[in-house]
Every structure is written in structure tokens, then in C-alpha cells.
Design a protein around this nucleic acid. Structure first.
Lengths: 356, 356
DNA sequence: CTGTTAGCGCTTTCAG
DNA sequence: CTGAAAGCGCTAACAG
């Protein structure tokens, strides 16, 4: 009997091989405590830990000394929760602009405060699989989502939020979205251009297949400004590679005197094409766009643009997600903030039209 | 006895709650097979599966029908491997340029071919923790790494590779790096400018704390070109916000006739500052940079630049990582390819200096 | 207050 | 060729 016991103990006490990470059992053994005690010390805040301060510190010290870090897969399996939020973005790589930096800064911080990590999930054929494996406790959909991915996400019934994205199917599945008032932003921009005396505004994008809701809302807002001013013309749309329409814009009567460009990165090839043709901005044609990023600031000439309250949107998104994850209290003290309006930033790319 | 057995069976046969994902046990029960059989069917390629074709298909069909997807945490725990590669990048958000798109495309594809997924790990205070939890089978360090993170990574003894990054500590830990020949690229660029007749070249960056090895190698390469041509001057360096040095560059004698700018995104504020001051590029001063991205193509004027073979570097990095992960065979047929040289792309931003 | 025990969902021996 | 059983590392319920 005692022999058996000894053998059993021996068998269990495998010395952790030098390279391998120590397990909670190793820490327990080293400290003379039980694994569950170590676990408690590690997982409860000092104030509501069901351990003696002495034991708690002893456990913590042992863990610290051995460089113990909980194995993530084991925790996830046991807790049935990965404490990780996945960030879905349209392409393999997050797009250059779209004020990514501002958004991420806020998102990561707020999630960390509630003990969640964030990871980017590059778009790929394997995205469906990845989503269905239970790797994420929640999802942030950034900017847009493909229909077949939306379908999967809807079926998953995972906490999720759309940030600057919209999708009917996901809305039906009670996944909230946070979107800027693009219509209003474009309306403001249109009003400003009309105040400047522009009689003909065109709406352009260098992206061939843009189906983002912002694209349409910014178009509609521009049209609304024209209508409001009782100007009698249709806002013409030009999209696709800039070379495919730029010459038409510069010759088709009545000549457009101002171009509203769908987005900041889109505007760079536009400015380049105008420059190549010797068309002066803003003397011969005004150009304005959306997103107040370094790209608009450093453009030649610096671009008049609408600043979208991206950080605030990110904050709101984090809140909506955390609420679904059961951290409603995380925001208890804050009032549900009204969405900030977009702000017009006037730079050198717009001016009253020349009267020729 | 038989009562006990029945109760035990009853207790185990919990019907999977409608929302919850089915487990392998559910699939087993539904198909009348054992969990291990389902597992085998799912995890072995058709040819070397130790099951009857009939059983295999039966298992697969049942899994398919119930929409079964293996729980990722359970697989990871059991296999002691997450089949996930983490991508470390310097800032929270991958930087705008640096040819990210090209790199990621290649990296994701090659990893997928070997059954690995890739996830971005945003930089944050929690990065050390995240790395130490065993969430990743391997790490790709992109562009640069902070010393304290390097220390952790080195201690981890995790398969890893540095892509366009260098770190002494990690090199000591036998972590390979893939870097372009920036010195040669800058040398080529410098030679071209000198051939154009430029007698005074300055090296500039709008980034205040740039410590990337490329920064120094491109500087050194530029200096080497000057030296090689037996021109008797030091290449002056200007760095930090463009406003802090641009006026000096335009007045300090001898006047620089060409600027080599550290990187594509850096060049945009530079061009803007020159434009603001009415300095014509290339008539009054030439500007050249590195990375053949849309930013250099759409700049005003379009920028002469060195194309860095990023895709090839990514391929090499994937290979070095997969080899460490024990997939040496994945590349068996390919020869170890020599690194492609950088390529000079001449655009409108450079011209022979005016003789004033 | 601490330790023992069970089991999260899966894969991999090992028996049959 | 298939099934039963063990156990990856952890935490939560329960006993002592």
C-alpha cells in the first residue's frame, strides 16, 4: 500500500524539463500548496481572494519565481472563454487610412481595461473555419463584411459589433453597428462648397467597386445640399481608375467646379491626375474629401476634409461589445454619449470657382 | 446494477442545447460511432486514414450535417500546438505603407498551405503576457521589435523569424532574419543621382526617432555612393518634423540639390513642405525615396524610388519559419533562392540639377 | 481557509 | 479496423 503510494507520487513528480514551461502543478509542488490554491491566488483580485494574505503571497511568489504563465488553451477550455476579441477587416491587411490608428488605440485600451485582448484576423478563405472554432469571445467587424462571412457570423450568435460597417443580416441578428452620420457630413461639405459659389459639384471615387454605405450616404448628402440650394442639376458620379474618367470631368459641359471625393486615400490619385494635366487646384477646380488624416494634411494642396469622430465611434463600439459580454458596469458612470457631429476642416484645396 | 448503468447513460446524453456548438461526442452519438473514430476521420488525409472508406464517410457526413467544428482550445490543449502564427508589429496598427499588402498576401498563403493561421498581435503593455501564454506556435517579427519584447521572445525559445527587422539578442537566440540589402539599394540610388550630376545629396526623414536598421543602411549606402564618386563632402542628415529642418536645407551652403528620403510615407510631408515654400521638384531640388507603393506613384510629382523585393522576402521568411516548425519538406523542391536586388524606378521627382 | 476531485473537448495510445 | 480510456493544464465545486 505505502509502496503504491510512493510509486504514484514518484510517477507524478516529473521534473519539468528545462525548456518546457512550468504548469500550475509545478508551482503547487514547489510552494507546497495545492494547484487550486495557486489558481485562486492568480485569478482573484487581492481584496476578494478567498485566501489568507500569507498564502496568497506565497502562491504569487512561487509563480513569479518560476516564471509561471497560465497555458492559454487550458484556461480557455476550462473557462469556455478565450478572453480574446477578433477584429475582422475586409482585406488581408488593414487599409492604409480610414483613421485606423485612432480607432485601434481606443479599442485596444478599452478592451484591455476589461481583460480582453484584441487580435486582427486577416481575411482569407479560412475565415469561416477560424470563426467557427470558438477562438474568440467577440468580434469587431471593421468597415465592411462580405455576405458569406456575415452569414456565418449571424449563425454563430457571438457577441459582436460593427464599426463603421453595416449589414442587414447582422442587424437582423441583433448585432449593433456604430456608424458616422455620413449623410450629414456630406451635406455640410456640400453647403460649404455652395456657399463658396460652386454651381456644379461632381462626386468621385477611384475605387472601382465601392459598395460601402459611406459611399452612398456621402453621395446622397452631396445631392441633398444641391437640392436644398435649389440648384437644378444632378450630381454626377465618377468611379473607377481615375484615368478612366478624369478627362470627361474636365470637358463635359456643364463643367464641374468642385469635386467631392469619397475618401482621403482615394483623393491622392485624383490630385495626381489633375496635376499631371496641369489643372490647378483650387484655382481651376476645388477638391474636398472625408477623413482628417495625415494624407489629407500632406496632400498637394492640403485637402479640405470632413473630420469623422472615429475615436468616439470606437469607444461606442467597445461599449456595445462589452455590454454584450456582460460588462455593462464597465461604463456605468458614463452617460450614453450623443454622437459627435463631423467637423469641416477647411484647407487650401477649395476656393470659390473662377468665373470664366 | 442495470439501473446505475442506465442512469449513467442518461446523465451523459445531455441533448446539446440548441445554441451551443456540438462536440465530437455529439457527432459520435448521432452517427453511432466512437468519438475517436470521428477524430480520425477528420484529422487524416483520405489516403492514409486508418478507417474503412465507409466509416470515414459516415463520420464525415455526420460531422458535416451537425455543423461540427472542433473546439479550438481543446485541440490546442491536447495537441500542445495552436497552429497559429502571431505577427508582431511595432505599433498598435500596422503602418500605412511598408508594402504591407504584398507581404501579408504571401505570408498568409504560404502559412495556410501548411495549415497555420496568422494573426496580428497589436502592440500593447500586455504583449509580454500574450506571448508567454503559449497562444502561438511561431512568431513573425515585422519591421522592428522593442528590446524588452525581444528579451521575452528570446527566452521563449519559440520558432520565430524577423522580417525586415534585426535584433542582436534574437540573432543570438538563433532567430533568423530576412532583410533587404538597403545599403545596396541606397548605393544604386546615390549612383543614379550622381550620374544625373548631383553634387550635393542630403538624407532626410520626417520621423523623429527612427532607429530601424534600414534608416542607417540607407544613409550608409548614400554616403558610399558619394565616396565612390570621390565627391568631397559629408552627406548631411535631417530628421524630425519636416518644419524643423526644411528651411535649413534650402539655405545652408552648399545647397543640397537632391534629397534621399528614408521612406515613402516620410516623403509626403516633405513634398508638401517644399510645395508650400514654392520650391519646384525636380527643377530646384530632386527627391527620391524607397518602397514602390501607391504613395510614391501618386505623389506630386511621382517619386523616383527603389523597389524592395518584399514579396520575396516574405516568402523567405515563411520558409525559415516553417522549417523551424518541422515542415522542412514544404520547400524541398525549391532551391534556396538568392535574394533579388532592389530595383530603381525612375519617375518625375528627379532630374539633373539646375546650374545656378 | 485549503485541498481533493471532476471534467472542459479533444487526440492518441492501446486493447479487442 | 474500431472503441475505450487516459490525460493535455486549468478552474470551480465541494469537502474537510
Amino acid at each position: 500500500m505505502s509502496d503504491v503510494a510512493i510509486i504514484s507520487v514518484m510517477a507524478k513528480s516529473k521534473i519539468p524539463s528545462p525548456g518546457a514551461r512550468p504548469t500550475i502543478a509545478d508551482v503547487a509542488k514547489a510552494s507546497g500548496l495545492a494547484p487550486s490554491t495557486i489558481s485562486k491566488a492568480l485569478n482573484h483580485s487581492p481584496d476578494k481572494c478567498p485566501l489568507t494574505e500569507r498564502t496568497r503571497l506565497k502562491a504569487l511568489k512561487a509563480a513569479q519565481e518560476m516564471g509561471y504563465k497560465p497555458a492559454w488553451a487550458a484556461q480557455a477550455l476550462r473557462r469556455q472563454s478565450t478572453r480574446t476579441i477578433g477584429l475582422l477587416h475586409w482585406s488581408r491587411v488593414p487599409e492604409a487610412s480610414e483613421a485606423w490608428h485612432d480607432i485601434l488605440e481606443v479599442l485596444v485600451d478599452l478592451l484591455h481595461q476589461n481583460d480582453y485582448d484584441l487580435q486582427f484576423i486577416p481575411n482569407s478563405e479560412r475565415l469561416p473555419q477560424i470563426l467557427q472554432q470558438g477562438r474568440f469571445d467577440g468580434i469587431v467587424v471593421a468597415h465592411s463584411i462580405e455576405p458569406h462571412v456575415a452569414k456565418i457570423l449571424a449563425d454563430l450568435k457571438l457577441p459582436a459589433v460593427m464599426l463603421n460597417a453595416q449589414d442587414e443580416l447582422l442587424n437582423k441578428a441583433n448585432i449593433p453597428d456604430v456608424t458616422p452620420d455620413d449623410h450629414d457630413a456630406a451635406l455640410q461639405l456640400g453647403r460649404y462648397l455652395i456657399r463658396q459659389g460652386h454651381k456644379h459639384i461632381a462626386y468621385v471615387s477611384t475605387h472601382p467597386y465601392m459598395r460601402h454605405f459611406s459611399y452612398f450616404q456621402r453621395l446622397a448628402g452631396t445631392q441633398a445640399a444641391v437640392k436644398e440650394a435649389k440648384l437644378k442639376y444632378e450630381v454626377r458620379q465618377f468611379k473607377g481608375p481615375v484615368g478612366s474618367w478624369i478627362d470627361r470631368i474636365l470637358t463635359e459641359q456643364p463643367l464641374a467646379t468642385a469635386l467631392v471625393c469619397y475618401s482621403d486615400v482615394d483623393a491622392l490619385p485624383l490630385l495626381s491626375a489633375l496635376w499631371q494635366r496641369g489643372v490647378k487646384v483650387p484655382e481651376q477646380i476645388s477638391v474636398a474629401t472625408f477623413n482628417d488624416t495625415p494624407f489629407t494634411l500632406n496632400a498637394i494642396p492640403p485637402l479640405t476634409t470632413m473630420r469623422i469622430p472615429m475615436q468616439q465611434m470606437a469607444q461606442q463600439a467597445a461599449r456595445l461589445l462589452l455590454e454584450q459580454l456582460g460588462h455593462a458596469d464597465a461604463f456605468e458612470d458614463h452617460q450614453p454619449m450623443p454622437m459627435l457631429a463631423s467637423e469641416l476642416i477647411i484647407r487650401a484645396s477649395t476656393a470659390p470657382p473662377s468665373h470664366r
